[in-house]
Computed example of a mutant assay.
Amino acid sequence: MSAGRNVLTPEALTMMDVIARTGSFAAAARALGKVPSSLTYSVRQLEDALDVLLFDRRSGQARLTAAGQELLDEGRRLLEQIDAVANRVRRVATGWETQLGIALDGILSRPTVLELCEAFYAACASLSGGASGAGTHSTRLKLRTEVLAGTWEALVTGQVDLAIGVGSDRLLPPGIRLKELGSVRFVFAVAPHHPLAAASEPISDAELARHRAVAVADSAQRLTPLTVNLLPEQDVLTVSSMQVKIDAQLRGLGCGFVPEPLARVHIDAGRLVAKPVQRALRPVAMGYAWRAPETAGPEGDHAGLGLALRWWLEQLESPTTRRALLERHGNPAALGLA
């Protein structure tokens, strides 16, 4: 057995991940509950065994070398695979996943997502005869909000088991299934005090290009990020989420296209003004996709899936739930989940 295999333990890979995330040996030592000298010694042991330099220490910070970055990337992938193996083993024994990862596009209804979580925990408690939220079931939900291609990337790279709000026109790699979620209509909106609020209609691209746009950054790290509805040479304010984008447009910091269900409450209240534009605006088709065994049956067959993922897919088969995820952004009466 090689020396590299002996030192590339889950503990060593986790140590690399923590150092990279915290940015220094001292901060990583605190996060791991170690003294800095012990952590430094462990890193040197790892470097000696691999015969490479993992960190450039000249700056006084933990800066990764090219070799260190490669080990970090591959180490994170290996840790995800180890977690997935443990999850599959437990699922074989009990039918329930240890953890279920779900990526959610940022335009989905947060109240509806949380109601689904609440219903999931209640269903788990009912099956085990316990009280909701009392830890009677050990499937942990791990939700993450993504933007544009980032939602799809989280699924195809194995970071999550289910992605809700992906583009529905994708070529599917082996082991990925996709169903239609619905479509979202976008509107061009500005604050009442924005110069375009008084512009002649419909507004041309030439006129739009003269004004700053507010755009949400694609969260994809490996796939090619998507850019939507931005014009060449247009000034852009880039933000992290659709909600921040809307907040920026409410302040008149820029203009842009926003999902009509999210903007509706602001348009009705007069805080945003929807303006017709010359370019054709088509509804955006969205879907939900999940990781399934390549040996599974036809689409709709949930055989081979864990019980937690199966539960979520059953909820998404309800037209009411799908519509609520895309349109219910206010505070109406509680949604009845199928």
Rank of each mutant, 00 (worst) to 15 (best):
K179P: 00
P202K: 13
L196V: 04
L171P: 02
R210P: 11
A213F: 12
L172R: 11
P173W: 02
H193V: 06
R170K: 10
H193S: 14
K179W: 06
L181V: 12
H211Q: 13
A198K: 15
A199V: 15
R210A: 14
T224F: 00
P195V: 07
D205M: 13
A198E: 13
I164M: 02
H211W: 13
L223K: 05
V184P: 02
A163F: 04
T224S: 03
A163T: 02
A206W: 04
E207W: 04
A215P: 01
I176M: 12
L172E: 13
I176S: 07
A191F: 02
S168R: 08
R177E: 14
A213V: 14
F186P: 01
A209V: 06
E207D: 15
I176C: 09
P174L: 12
V187P: 00
V190W: 02
L223W: 01
V166R: 04
D205I: 04
R222M: 09
A206Q: 15
I176R: 07
A217Q: 15
A163R: 02
T224K: 05
A199Q: 14
D169Q: 10
L172K: 08
A220H: 07
P173E: 04
L178E: 06
A220S: 15
I176K: 04
R177A: 11
Q221Y: 04
V214C: 10
K179T: 07
R212V: 08
A197K: 10
S168H: 06
D218W: 05
G165W: 05
E207T: 15
T224N: 03
R185C: 06
I164P: 00
E201S: 15
S204G: 13
L196H: 03
A189H: 01
A163M: 08
V190E: 01
H211A: 05
V214D: 07
P195Y: 11
S168P: 00
A213G: 08
A220E: 08
E201I: 15
A197H: 10
K179C: 10
F188M: 03
L208R: 13
H194F: 08
I176T: 09
A209M: 12
A199H: 14
F188W: 04
R210S: 13
V187D: 01
R210F: 08
